[in-house]
Design a protein around this nucleic acid. Structure first.
Lengths: 337, 337
DNA sequence: TTAAGAAACAGAAACGTTTCGGCGGAAAGT
DNA sequence: ACTTTCCGCCGAAACGTTTCTGTTTCTTAA
């Protein structure tokens, strides 16, 4: 049905190699160039990238596997990344694995079969065995946001420990000591780091962390609602709370609204990630923001470099990039000293 | 580098056709089956989908072109859709075209070159010429959310007119008559329909629409902020406002917060799309919600059907599905009669 | 004018799979 | 006993490119 290079060779009376050369920017006599262009227009010819990919062994496609498409942090990163990749001629296949290890493994294998030129993954679990096929075939792998065991590759991370520590220190600085935390799943790297930052801040201030003030959600809105409800119920003396991702921040705000608890009069609040949501709250929330655009940019740059270079020779020259967060002040924290 | 079907044919001493047959679920003697499985394991063989795609002329991939990945309405739909497509063995290539007609056209052509088996598009403009290559090649096209000119294909839409009309009628029902509207770009179908619904509701109630009460944003958070600022400034007598998408709803809430205007005491408010955001506002917002999961499901079903069937024979048997919205009551509307 | 060198072109092979036509042998029917 | 049927298997051809190896044509300088 669709026109091929052969059709336009026949129509122009030229050889296959000439047409191919023209398509790939090679030199062709002006007269022939015009003939080819006319034929392409007439037949609506468009290169078949599938055939090209088979021959060249490069699909100009990168795979992206993330836990949830429905997560602002993920889509913000992907948006920035895809923009750069596309400008370099690469397509992006995004697979959302619903925070499911088994689906993640299947997504990775699927992308391998599709022969993507590189893969970017925000891993769900804490080991990297699902990426074995890429490692064995020496295809570039870049991991984002979460560090995991048993895999050597490039990383783009955020300094979560400092992020949480700074947030909690700022609460301590204005007099809070009974500070609650809504953290993520215990087996996720970012959640561990943020929890550690929380505890370190307390300990450096001479406060002993109280497990009763710590709740673990699963990075969803609903879990944010439930965690804040439990925290409020179990800790009447809690004066502030720190929430460690966007979705749970939204959930916690919902929970507080529905319980009738006022920010910052009844409780001081520091959330995570979305400046827009922070502004939409009354009063404006103080939040930790992550540099999503920069993460996307770095990831794209690294994987492009790996894909263009023949193959990285050295075994251990992998990059580990750690970006810093910012604390954006709102009016959700009350001074109590 | 990677193992091929030939390698495992050589290793097992069997023929190419037998291996292919095994891979595709055909009948192979038990004894040979075991040999093949052993060889596959030993060589880490995975089918090369690029080669398969070239031969079969089906890539098991569908393309999706949307205006913004960074838009909850879009990602909600994609999430639902991708789930179903993946369960049927189809991959999804998502292209975000930044609400740019030129980028949209390039994305579509890119996907055509990739030989996707079908394409799903939430169109940016109001004509369908960018999809010509797909139409000519008789490859299924499904459009979502926005109706455009000059193209016959399947559609999955939302009844935007009724959505807006019902929202505005509910405001009128509790005594409002100076009702502002923040709508979308005038060249976008959904924006036109929502504006029409707004005007119809007013006119049926005997109220003459006042252009001074209508602002057009561009479906972004920032435009929501600016529109609400202008509305408030220009219309001291306005008692209610209806905002016609999620991002602008968020923007309008931000704007009202920053102006110190109270919902619902100073102004009644009906927003759009996100139930979670509505709950996170204090007081909870009344909003129009769209059935994103159902849209995704319908789209997936339709395109799957078109891709599996050889080709739709009849010229004009295209589906046009129109789904209904819901009005979710919050406490952001004040009764003033 | 001609030889040499470069530029433009042509054809065939290859990429890894599916599929078509055929073939041998075992089971089933006469 | 024989044909017939069917199953499992094989090899070759094809999908639409790129690329390698030559061949022809054009330039240029002696």
């Amino acid at each position: 049905m669709a026109a091929t290079i052969k059709d336009i060779a026949r129509l122009t009376g030229l050889g296959l190699a000439t047409i191919s050369s023209y398509i790939n920017g090679g030199n062709v006599r002006k007269e022939n160039k015009e003939k080819i262009e006319a034929a392409i227009k007439e037949l609506n010819f468009e290169v078949n990238e599938v055939a090209r990919g088979l021959k060249t062994k490069r699909t100009k496609t990168v795979g992206v596997v993330i836990p949830e498409l429905n997560n602002k942090f993920c889509t913000d990163i992907i948006t920035a990344m895809e923009d750069i990749l596309r400008n370099h001629g690469y397509a992006t296949i995004v697979c959302d694995c619903r925070t499911d290890r088994e689906l993640e493994k299947r997504a990775v294998e699927f992308l391998y079969r599709k022969r993507v030129d590189g893969i970017i993954n925000m891993p769900v679990g804490c080991d990297g065995s699902h990426l074995d096929c890429f490692r064995k075939a020496n295809i570039p792998v870049v991991l984002i946001d979460r560090k995991i065991n048993g895999i050597d590759c490039d990383y783009v991370l955020v300094d979560n420990l400092a992020a949480a520590k700074n947030a909690v220190m700022s609460l301590i600085g204005v007099g809070h000591s009974r500070i609650g935390m809504i953290g993520g799943p215990t087996d996720i790297y970012t959640a561990q780091e943020r929890l550690l930052g929380y505890k370190l801040a307390l300990m450096e201030a001479g406060i002993v962390p109280d497990e009763g003030l710590i709740e673990h959600g699963d990075y969803t809105i609903n879990s944010g609602v439930h965690c804040i409800e439990r925290l409020i119920k179990n800790n009447p003396d809690m004066t502030a709370v720190f929430v460690a991702n966007y979705e749970m921040t939204m959930g916690a705000v919902i929970g507080l609204n529905e319980l009738g608890v006022r920010i910052p009069d009844d409780i001081s609040f520091i959330g995570f990630d979305s400046e827009e949501f922070a502004r939409a709250c009354r009063p404006k929330l103080t939040i930790v923001t992550q540099p999503t655009a920069e993460i996307g940019k770095k990831v794209a740059e690294i994987i492009l470099q790996r894909m263009e270079k023949p193959q990285a020779a050295g075994p251990a020259d992998f990059k580990l990039i750690k970006l810093q967060t910012k604390l954006v002040e709102g009016s959700s924290v009350k001074r109590i000293i």
